[in-house]
Amino acid sequence: MPIVIDSDFKQMLAGFGLTTAEVLYRMPDHPSLLQTFHWQFEDLSPDYPRLKRFLDHWEREIEAMIHSVRIMHHRLIAPREVRLVRDGGLLQ
């Protein structure tokens, strides 16, 4: 029987993680008002291809002018610290 690996798990191993983007923008009819849009999704750090596609779409299709974008990212699977212990003491 073949082993089936979940596609979401494969993405986690490839480095995908939970990404939150905070987009600050201004609408043309209220240029002095800075507004916020938050979006949370899975993306691949450090290139963020999904975020780039979204921002490209925003630039093409939405009238609002982006002021800045802040990105927070956390890998869903990351290396863990390993300590070797023998006879109750930590090996250096």
Rank of each mutant, 00 (worst) to 15 (best):
R50W: 02
P79F: 05
K10T: 08
I77Q: 02
V69A: 09
D56N: 14
V85H: 08
E59T: 11
V23I: 15
V85T: 10
D43F: 01
R60D: 03
H67P: 12
K10R: 01
R83C: 12
V69W: 05
R80P: 11
A78Q: 11
L76H: 05
Y48V: 04
F54S: 09
F41Q: 13
R70H: 15
L90H: 05
I71V: 13
H73Y: 01
H57F: 07
E42A: 09
K52Y: 04
I66W: 03
T20P: 08
A64L: 06
T36S: 13
Q35T: 10
M65N: 15
I71G: 07
L90A: 06
Q35H: 11
M1N: 01
M27I: 06
T36I: 06
G89Q: 09
F16K: 15
F41K: 09
R70P: 07
P28A: 00
V23F: 08
E63S: 12
D56F: 08
I5M: 02
D47W: 05
M27E: 09
L18E: 08
I71L: 06
D87M: 10
Q11C: 02
L55W: 12
M12C: 05
Y48Q: 01
D87P: 06
V82M: 14
K10F: 02
D43I: 01
H57E: 06
T19H: 03
I5H: 00
R86A: 14
P49T: 01
R83G: 10
P49W: 03
H73L: 04
W58M: 05
D56H: 15
S7E: 05
W39D: 02
Y25A: 14
L18D: 10
D29R: 05
P49V: 02
W39Y: 03
D6S: 15
H57R: 02
R53I: 10
G17N: 13
G17H: 09
Q92I: 07
D8A: 11
L76S: 06
D87Q: 14
I62H: 12
S45R: 03
R53K: 14
A14Q: 07
H30C: 04
M27D: 07
L91P: 09
K52R: 03
F41N: 09
P49H: 03
E81D: 14
L13E: 00
L34G: 07
K52S: 09
R80K: 03
V69R: 03
P79C: 03
A78N: 12
V69Y: 06
S68D: 14
H30W: 00
V4T: 00
Y48K: 03
S45G: 04
W39N: 02
L24Q: 00
D43Q: 01
G88I: 01
W58L: 06
L76I: 04
L33K: 11
R83F: 11
H73P: 00
L91C: 14
M65G: 15
M72W: 00
H67G: 11
R75P: 10
F41I: 07
R86D: 09
F9D: 13
E61M: 13
R50E: 05
A14M: 09
F16S: 10
S68A: 15
G17M: 13
V69K: 00
S68R: 11
L55P: 06
E42H: 06
A78I: 13
L13P: 11
T36H: 07
K10G: 11
D56T: 14
M1S: 05
Q35L: 10
M72S: 10
